[in-house]
């Protein structure tokens, strides 16, 4: 069956990656996965700083994408002028079509200077007390990577959220309206809870995208192998580590990169499987079709 190719592909994926990663585990054990010292020249392959960087950029991206994406999705499904909803939805979704390398270039050349001169100083003066914004304003770094990632995952969040919000049956809306609910109460108390499983799916898919994004992050994060002391500091993520050191890697280092890719793949499969289960269940119960970007 031609369709079976996917199941085979997924298994082949994991197997191929695992065979290349095995030497890393046999030579280094599993402890390198949480070692914090990355120094290939002296055979130190701790990938913890990159794992932490991945989580940090993803948290920044998702923390911005969830509220803004939800607000946008509500606006597109229920609040914007009817005639504008479809074209504006398309416009937001087109953000997903822009190649990630273009985001990286734009982030590096256009947004990074803006961060250095304006965003970071402003943010530091307001939120400096949190201790998260120490060090010089340099543009590239964790924060910029997180914000660029946010822009990149936003369309995923919006497209799916809008569909699942719009799929909440209209009689629920009328039921709430007829009880004297304001427009916002209808949205907040009936529509959002009614779509919560699908929204969870949108959140999960956006998280998956943020975790795996490579080239845009590699261009704007500053690629450092150290745990970032500040949101403004350079950092690295697992994908950016792989892409930036793949060229010169050989031997054990290459195996470690494959092991890191294996972790990324397994996490990616897990996150996506979870997301699809969420979105599916909405699709099955809701009437409207759910398009998944």
């Amino acid at each position: 069956m031609a369709g079976g190719i996917f199941a085979v592909l997924l298994i082949a994926f994991v197997v191929a990656m695992a065979t290349q990663a095995v030497p890393a585990f046999s030579k280094l054990g599993v402890s390198f996965l949480w070692g914090s010292n990355w120094d290939p020249a002296h055979n130190h392959f701790g990938v913890l700083p990159f794992a932490v960087g991945t989580i940090e950029t993803t948290v920044i991206a998702v923390a911005l994408a969830v509220p803004i994406g939800l607000g946008t999705a509500l606006a597109l499904a229920y609040l914007a002028p009817r005639r504008l909803r479809a074209p504006l939805s398309t416009a937001v979704e087109l953000l997903a079509a822009v190649p990630s390398v273009v985001y990286g270039l734009w982030g590096l050349v256009a947004v990074a200077p803006l961060f250095r001169t304006t965003v970071e100083p402003q943010l530091t003066s307001v939120l400096g007390w949190t201790g998260l914004l120490g060090g010089p304003n340099q543009g590239v770094g964790l924060l910029l990577a997180g914000v660029i990632l946010f822009i990149m995952v936003l369309p995923t969040m919006v497209a799916i959220s809008r569909d699942v919000l719009a799929a909440v049956p209209h009689d629920q809306v009328e039921g709430a309206m007829a009880l004297g609910a304001t427009r916002w109460q209808v949205l907040r108390k009936v529509i959002v809870p009614g779509a919560r499983v699908g929204l969870l799916g949108a959140f999960t898919l956006a998280t998956g995208r943020a975790l795996g994004e490579t080239v845009a992050v590699a261009l704007v994060i500053g690629n450092s192998a150290h745990l970032a002391p500040s949101l403004k500091a350079n950092a690295g993520t697992i994908p950016s580590l792989i892409v930036s050191s793949f060229g010169e890697a050989s031997g054990t280092q290459l195996n470690v990169l494959f092991a890191a890719a294996l972790v990324l793949l397994v996490v990616g499969i897990g996150v996506n499987a979870l997301a699809r289960v969420f979105v599916r269940s909405v699709k099955r119960s809701g009437a409207a079709s759910v398009t998944v970007a």
Partner: peptide
């Protein structure tokens, strides 16, 4: 099949590159 195809769509594209390399 549909499920694994959907998952494949969401898998980080860098892992697909590495798969191609291997």
């Amino acid at each position: 099949v549909r499920f694994s195809a959907d998952i494949l769509t969401g898998v980080p594209s860098i892992t697909i590159g590495i798969f191609g390399y291997i």
